[in-house]
Design a protein around this nucleic acid. Structure first.
Lengths: 336, 336
DNA sequence: ATGAAAGCGCTAACAA
DNA sequence: TTGTTAGCGCTTTCAT
């Protein structure tokens, strides 16, 4: 790999001149420009970003740290963030923690050593958040995504979970359902708690007292959807509708319904968070709270870069993004 | 961010000593070790990997470049590669090209400037592959994944596509189907061509002459699955079975079946590449050629690192991974 | 066992 | 306009 010195030699100029034509920092005569460009091409020269970063103390590198790259909810977020980063001259990559706080710590440490400019973080749940605190103290910018790290004050882009859940359950009520069960996310996650709150709000709004026997705490994984719905369908007093708090769990619920031989929406209505591309193939099509994932990613990246570039006031900025309810057949109005 | 100098000062030693205790390169007396560790902790010091990399000319950074992070086929590959990389002391991240060769070029350029040690590449299709050639010439290691870049000789980990398709179609034939249609991938992709070949091989093996009217060239996207199966189902002489060459297109096929009111497997049998987690929710469960994605990722990373560390003979190493056929209800044996 | 110092490839302040 | 040079934070050779 040639260095700037070799380029300079070949072009017969100083390294400062090479640097100037590359970065356009200073005026360089057309003749020299030409010669330098030629040398660069001839040598197939790529500036060493490590050296540059070392000098200017910024890498223009951003990393999105995700808990579970397998969750189909994330890819669009990445795309949104990537597009935004690129437009503003940053480079964005992705790293995966597998929901393990230990891996998250390791990754964050590595990113610190690589001196990335900023981190987009959907944190794995865990009580030991010292790695986040210390990275923040060190002056690295972090924007939380989808979930916050509790106990940490930082910029964040979150879905308006309460509202999404509320609108969805409200719709179920209007469609004539009253015994509405919920399969929540883990209640140690803010996301989990907020969606449960929206559920409760909608019920009380319609003067229905939330029934603890209809509240099932899942963990956002497929198996919990399966297990919990099996359990609820075994009961004598079954619910007339289920509201599932994320898409992956819904896969489990569908499996349980199939095994139980229950038909949706005739035997039981179903509404869920997250579109999983199932709408095409699964029958009936599911009523869904859709998150604008691309926008979430783009907003988060925008805030991160604004923060890095010092364009934001000191206080943490927390943005709530509104979801959209898409009504489909799985919640067809109930025959009276 | 403190530097090694500050650590040295605080510990009252030279920077060489600090470096030695961090890297364990040389013996350091326990007393000094202690003092250095303390200083590191006190200052919350993270070694500057940029500076280190600049000096030692390696970053221990690997990047997987993917064409479409939205395709559920990739996440497991990432996990496999990540685990392997981590075990061997490398750090792996992911970047996304969106199937656009232009983006791929930009990303590869950036990675070159960042001086990453190696690239795992599932290349976007495109005829201008100069960026790959030049990066290879520069001595950077690349391992191709899932698809090769045609015209380039480099290490690769590929699925045994011919065999996967052949076994699948062979199974259909044994189950009593004879008019078997195929929805292929883009035939400009090796993957697309190989799966078609396996299909043909299986037919000829059973003395069935492949019928051009049953061969439909798709593009691995959902819409082509939808469109092409609509078209074939409109024909007077319908096929008795469809073999779909990837999972995403199958979503489209299912949609078409539903709209046409055709039932599987009674009206038509269905077999497909790639498990999309649909097996739980979609009825009937689909006969599938499953790719061992995790293993593909892990193998690729292993080869890449071995290559980087000079442990491989000079010739490109091409590994074929065997898929597994999982037979489910969608290809139930035909009533005679 | 410890330290001094050169140098990795670049930018930017300064000189010419 | 162009060039010289110090220095970014680290590793490593060579003295001590």
């Amino acid at each position: 790999m040639p260095s700037i010195v070799e380029v300079a030699k070949r072009a017969g100029v100083s390294i400062a001149t090479v640097s100037n034509v590359i970065r356009g920092t200073k005026r360089v005569s057309p003749a020299l420009q030409e010669r330098v460009q030629l040398a660069i091409r001839d040598l197939d020269y790529y500036p060493n970003e490590l050296a540059r970063s070392l000098k200017v103390k910024q890498t223009r590198m951003l990393v999105m740290v995700l808990p579970d790259i397998t969750n189909p909810f994330f890819p669009e977020i990445i795309r949104g963030a990537e597009d935004c980063a690129f437009q503003r001259g940053y480079f964005l990559m992705t790293a995966n923690t597998d929901e393990q706080i230990g891996r998250e710590r390791r990754i964050v440490s590595a990113l610190r050593s690589y001196r990335v400019d900023g981190i987009l973080l959907a944190s794995a749940p865990g009580k030991d958040i010292s790695h986040i605190e210390s990275v923040l103290r060190a002056g690295l910018s972090i924007v939380c995504l989808d979930r916050t790290v509790s106990g940490i004050e930082t910029d964040a882009v979150l879905l308006d979970n309460v509202r999404g859940a509320q609108e969805c359950v409200r719709h179920l009520i209007q469609a004539g359902y009253r015994r509405i069960a919920i399969i929540t996310g883990p209640l140690k996650l803010l996301t989990g708690r907020e969606r449960l709150r929206g559920y409760g709000d909608a019920l009380r709004e319609a003067d229905i007292e939330p029934d603890p026997a209809l509240i099932f705490e899942g963990d956002f994984r497929e198996d919990s959807g399966y297990r919990l719905s099996k359990e609820m369908l075994r009961r004598r007093r079954k619910p007339s509708a289920i509201f599932v708090c994320n898409g992956v769990m819904t896969l489990g619920v569908l499996k349980a319904l199939e095994e139980t031989g229950m038909l949706c929406p005739n035997d039981i209505a179903l509404a869920t968070f997250d579109d999983l591309m199932l709408d095409h193939s699964f029958h009936p099509h599911l009523t869904t709270v859709v998150q604008p994932s691309y926008e979430i990613g783009a907003r988060a990246a925008t805030i991160l870069i604004d923060r890095i570039e010092g364009k934001l006031p000191k206080e943490p900025l927390v943005v709530r993004i509104a979801p959209t309810l898409i009504v489909r057949e799985s919640t067809r109005p109930r025959r009276p």
